[in-house]
Simulated scan of single mutants.
Amino acid sequence: MKIGKELDYLLSLQKDKRVIRRILKVYNALVFKKGKGKSYFNCPSAYLKKVNGQYNKVTKLLLEHKIIDFKSVNTDESDLFNHRRKKYYDTEKGICMKYKFLIDVEQGYEYDLELDYSTIYDKEIWYSKTKQSLLELGFALEDLKIKRDNFSRRLHTNITNYIEGYGSYKNLLAGGDYYVIDGKTTQPRLLWLHLKEIGLQDENLNYIFENGLDFYQYLLDRIPALNNDRNEAKELFTTWINGTGYIDSEKTAIREIFKTANLFSAQYKTADYKNICRLLQYKEASIFIDDLLNNCPVEFCLSVHDALIVKKEDKDLMLQWCKERRPEILFTIEEVKSKQIK
């Protein structure tokens, strides 16, 4: 890491070596999250807490010395004589703190802190289970890449990178030895569940899921412009719920079909149109990674978004366990075949 004049000055004010090291660890962790960008970057408190339990003392110092800044949406005007900026985050919505550096982190003298933040999740059960599963598949320990995104909404591994980029899952797991337990229409279902949690009732969403109907078929039956194409129905849902608001004119009927959900979505996107996407991904990860993967009763298990990959001999046990553990999710199971799962 590089220590510029601003950070060097802050360190010179400290008399306790433990405080100096705490500052260096948190600062370095922020640089790690920053990546190559120059604007605000996501940095959840859970991540910084793993780095140091007193991280908030360090971020306060860094803010006071104009080394970093945080993203805010407005000000707290409850005190007429001392308006305070309001931090932009909401853990329930999957929105974490955003910081940006006010200094050039590439300038200064070299300092070797000898820390590797890529191993910050080593003690997590989902991490160890994923690591052991990948090792069993023949990956070399030094080549493993397992990480969560900036707000833990996704779990990325060597395998998922291959799936999303090249579809080579078929070369690795096809052949009858592995099965995928998939959450059917998970994103629409999670939207429905969230609305119920906050006391909103969308009549048509309720009708679909309370009667065990197929969400996408429901759209196909009511929007002729989808041409009876299930992939188009999926794309429409994604565009409607995660997009900026634009929908092809012949498909805008989805807004009227799900009036309550549409009003909720429009309001929820006021600060950032990506907020719904973050919310649903956060809920999905909480179920499939932090609950099912973390607690599953089998040794081999990999998660891919809203699916779990298990061995053939474990498939019946895992399917029944998932159904009992998460009855609000509709699970299906099939053999991993020579094609991409998703």
Rank of each mutant, 00 (worst) to 15 (best):
K5Q: 12
L10D: 05
Q14F: 08
R22Y: 00
K25A: 12
Y27A: 04
F32C: 06
K34N: 15
S39R: 14
F41R: 06
C43W: 05
K50P: 05
V51Y: 05
N52S: 07
K57S: 11
L61K: 02
I67L: 09
D76W: 09
N82G: 12
H83Q: 13
Y89D: 06
Y89A: 11
K98M: 14
V105W: 06
K123T: 14
K123R: 13
Q132Y: 10
S152H: 15
T157S: 00
S168Y: 00
K170Y: 03
V180Y: 01
K184H: 07
T185E: 11
R189G: 06
L191R: 01
Y207N: 14
F209I: 12
R222P: 10
L226H: 05
N231G: 14
N231T: 11
E235T: 13
G245E: 08
G245N: 10
E256Q: 10
L263N: 08
S265Q: 10
Y268R: 12
A271S: 13
D272P: 03
Y282E: 04
F288W: 15
H305L: 01
D306T: 11
Q320Y: 09
C322G: 11
R325V: 04
R326H: 13
E328Q: 15
T332F: 09
E335I: 12
E335P: 07
S338G: 08
